[in-house]
Design a protein around this nucleic acid. Structure first.
Lengths: 214, 214, 214, 214
DNA sequence: TATGAATGAGTGTTCATTCAT
DNA sequence: TATGAATGAACACTCATTCAT
């Protein structure tokens, strides 16, 4: 209303650049100067739009949280709607598409999360909320889970969420290192993910052995 | 066993302190001053024993690599010897015990790994070697894998190694956050891990559904 | 009288705001942004009306100088007209009224004056001119002074002008700190001033002891 | 005991340099780089010995306070011992000698004092304590003062302490500007001070007119 | 071995000032 | 006349590293 498209673009460009530099170097390793250069703006302009380097991080985290929460309630990615391995793969693809758009921030989440700094509390709160919504969104699931919520959370976190985030964070490095194409890598990952996490957590999901028979 | 009375101790204390501070703050966030304080030595002494801050990191990574490779060939943790869920749980416990001893370095691995800095090449080489040895150590496995090594690696990495490392890295935060005891958390994790990764990759490992029936 | 409806008002508002912020923070501590906020205008507008931050200071100093010189020749504050302690107190009150209107600028004068920067030359020239005019305005005085102009200037400056400026600059802080009302504080100050500076410099001014007898 | 003379010297040299630069440029106008250059040390070394620029200021203020309080109880500067104008002049000379040694800090006091920043509270507390001690040190005085402490403080502050501080702060500028020697300027100032403040506040101190008769 | 002192090269942030509209 | 956006030049402060002893 009161902003021209261009202004917003500059402000957004800074945020995007920040995500990239944070992902490349880590938050502490990132240089504001580099963010500015990447965004094509003067370093001081960053402080015109944002309060501090930490502010940028905070905003990125919040945007990610909102994006994921939106993702969870979206019709097209409702895990509850899984009826077959093919449907599951399709949903996984959609989810991964959306997460990969935010892969830079996800990398930062993974890095910051491992620290013993207060920041990991912020991140864990985010993951917490995500898991909670996951359970409450997928109604049928929520019921099952009830009996042993603690165990269910452990399973979701360590064999569900983390492998997915790890995939999003590391798939590019993997592709480059092993010279494998994105489509194929993702197909392999989804197959593994369905065979492990889904087979274990989703009622009636078919089991099959993951290592090819000799 | 192989230590001199004092000199080695101081040198080692520095390395241990470095691992702790790196884990708390990340490599870039870590301050040499803090390492010195934690080790109870003068900052300059660190440079008497080690070449640089990066040198400390490098040494820690190599020690971790050796420890893991040793772990892989150790009789007591040979995954090949898995004959029953009980045996598997026992082996997992041993593995986790050993990895948790190095949890500080593992946290750093996870952090550095996500960066696009050359450092992640070093780390990925390490993980690479680990996976390779894993396959070659567990002979039967190695054979199976042959047919589709690429898919097997993806599975091992994203649903095997990473969840384990994630567990080692985050279990303390998890315990604190959700007020859960280590024994119980680990039991839950192992159960999930066996039900997902093991059930998928180990021949003849029994499947069971992970979320309690209503 | 000589003002345009709006433009002049805005311009003046900026100058007044500048005086206030300079007084609060000192010239170097003052931020143009704060001046703008206080004046209720955009920061850039300040540069539309004035050349620079220093320009604002310069203008304020000159306005103060003119005000004081005007004060000196004003009929109602001619020190030469002192005939009794009551008349002196009345004149002092008028002078202090006028100076207090400019107390912000006077604070800045005091601050800048103590620096060894070229700025103090400017300020001392101002004070210089004031003293000179003082002598020349109060004719009778001027004659007496002649014999030892240097000593007279020292007296005027250190026991006359400076205490007055100090009073104007610090009286608000004093009032707040010691919870004393302006009327009373000023009465006490004038009494002290007359008893010290006036008794010493004005011919025939009565002496009385300043500390109450036991 | 554990420090060599040289180490102390470096730390002190920094403080002295800070006082000089603060006096020249004001606290906000002072650059840490310039302090370092003047002290002949690396900028970072300042932060090795002191916590911050403000820390330097704080330490300087405290040192000044201690010096003045010591001065007040010193036998050689006890104002109570004034028995004649000659004795008074001698004591004033001693006081001014001591204050001039700290003239840089006194300049800063004058500058900071006029601001509406919290710092002036700190300074006024200092002046407060000085006045209080002054009254309590000069016993006979203390009694007289009792009847109207408020008025006495006003007198001491505005016609006693401030003119002295002003003299200490501005005498060099004055000397340079009017090409007058220190000895003569000081003699003139002391004469004026005795004739004004002393004549008014010290019992039995002789009055004489300050402007030479025609 | 051990340390207090010292430093060069940054690092995030600020700020007076200018530009485009 | 007025403003939001933009910038160059600092600025206080930090930090890995080295030096002298």
């Amino acid at each position: 209303m009161k902003k021209q498209p261009q202004d917003e673009t500059t402000k957004e460009r800074i945020l995007t650049a920040a995500a990239a530099v944070f992902a490349n170097r880590g938050f502490d390793g990132a240089r504001v100067e580099e963010i500015a250069k990447l965004a094509g703006v003067n370093k001081a302009l960053i402080y015109y739009y944002y309060q501090s380097k930490e502010d940028l991080l905070s905003i990125l985290f919040n945007e990610l949280k909102d994006a994921i929460l939106t993702l969870l309630v979206s019709k097209e990615t409702r895990i509850i709607d899984i009826t077959s391995p093919e449907a599951a793969a399709q949903i996984m693809n959609r989810i991964l598409d959306l997460l990969e758009e935010r892969q830079n921030v996800i990398r930062v989440v993974i890095m910051e999360c491992a620290k013993r700094t207060p920041i990991n509390t912020q991140i864990f709160s985010m993951l917490d909320e995500i898991i909670t919504r996951m359970f409450s969104t997928t109604e049928g699931w929520a019921i099952e889970v009830g009996t042993n919520r603690s165990k269910a959370m452990v399973t979701e976190f360590f064999t569900g969420i983390m492998p997915m985030l790890d995939y999003v964070a590391y798939h590019e490095i993997w592709m480059e290192r092993y010279g494998i194409e994105e489509t194929i890598l993702r197909k392999q990952f989804i197959e593994s993910f369905l065979g492990t996490h889904f087979a274990y957590t989703v009622q009636g999901f078919p089991h099959k052995h993951g290592h090819p028979e000799a």
